[in-house]
Design a protein around this nucleic acid. Structure first.
Lengths: 149, 149
DNA sequence: TGCTATTCCTACAACATTGATATGAATTAT
DNA sequence: ATAATTCATATCAATGTTGTAGGAATAGCA
């Protein structure tokens, strides 16, 4: 699945802030852009969405920057993805403008709704802290993500 | 997850052909377009991809049309999706043009590759016949799709 | 043979989305 | 004051999506 840079950079920014503000300080967009090798101005737009979504707090002015608005354990990826991209976890179709009869609806229900369900459940139970902590481990022995679906 | 009409119409066409060619006859793009309420000319382009992917055989000329190239039990959705859309099941990034360091790679490995894996495994084990037969049932009691991931 | 129906193939266009860049206002620490 | 920083909006080029259009090639049928 191809993902947008907007979503990718947004998650990178959140992980960067979580990792580099452990002393309670702030992290500026210039720092993040430099560390992650991405455009600062583009990142600022993404930070806007993250702030409006309630994931970070911004402090203006000199020595300003961003902090997480709440602990990384309480930021779930489904919320972040919805704030950054309104289609990635969206239902695949709007029942209101369906015209193709029941076959169309069956295919949608059976396939896309099922895939959507997997993605939604996975991202609802995975927090930013999980993303940071678990992903550093070697994936070969992990069992914590062997979910039932 | 938003899906393209190209993928949606392609799956609709395959299910339509499977359902309406049980006597060994062919199904024309005009029939499909009419039944499913979609543009015939657009559908013809999609049928081209489905034929080139080896999922249907086309018979030209008067009284021509399409048939499945092999039984619906042997057409797996992962193959169809790849033929219709080169991003839906693709890896989320190309390692060659990664520049953002290890954090970027960790996020990709941990999140997108995992989601990709779910989608790939699900669509690899679901056939066109499954899509047709199972989706007609009421979904409340089904257990055949409670896979381990 | 000619007519019709159909697949097959290519070109193009309107529109939306993506991935930025640019500019500057507002705010804050020093 | 000045510099640093967030906050906000406008613009833009490239690309992808969703078709439309036109016609060549082929096959059945009268």
């Amino acid at each position: 699945m191809k993902i947008s840079t907007r979503v990718e950079y947004g998650l990178l920014a959140l992980t960067d802030i979580a990792v580099h503000s452990e002393d309670g300080g702030t992290v500026s967009s210039a720092e993040i852009a430099d560390r992650q090798g991405i455009s600062q101005k583009y990142l600022e737009q993404i930070m806007l969405a993250l702030r409006q979504g309630g994931f970070v707090k911004g402090q203006k002015g000199s020595r300003g920057g961003y902090q997480l608005a709440r602990p990384a354990e309480k930021i779930f990826l489904s919320q972040v993805l919805n704030a950054l991209d309104n289609s990635i976890l969206a239902d695949s179709f709007d029942p209101d403008d369906e015209q193709g009869g029941e076959m169309r609806e069956q295919v949608n229900n059976c396939l896309w709704d099922k895939l959507n369900g997997y993605m939604r459940r996975f991202t609802e139970q995975m927090s930013l802290a999980d993303l940071i902590n678990e992903c550093k481990k070697d994936s070969s022995e992990r069992k914590s993500y062997m979910y039932y679906i």
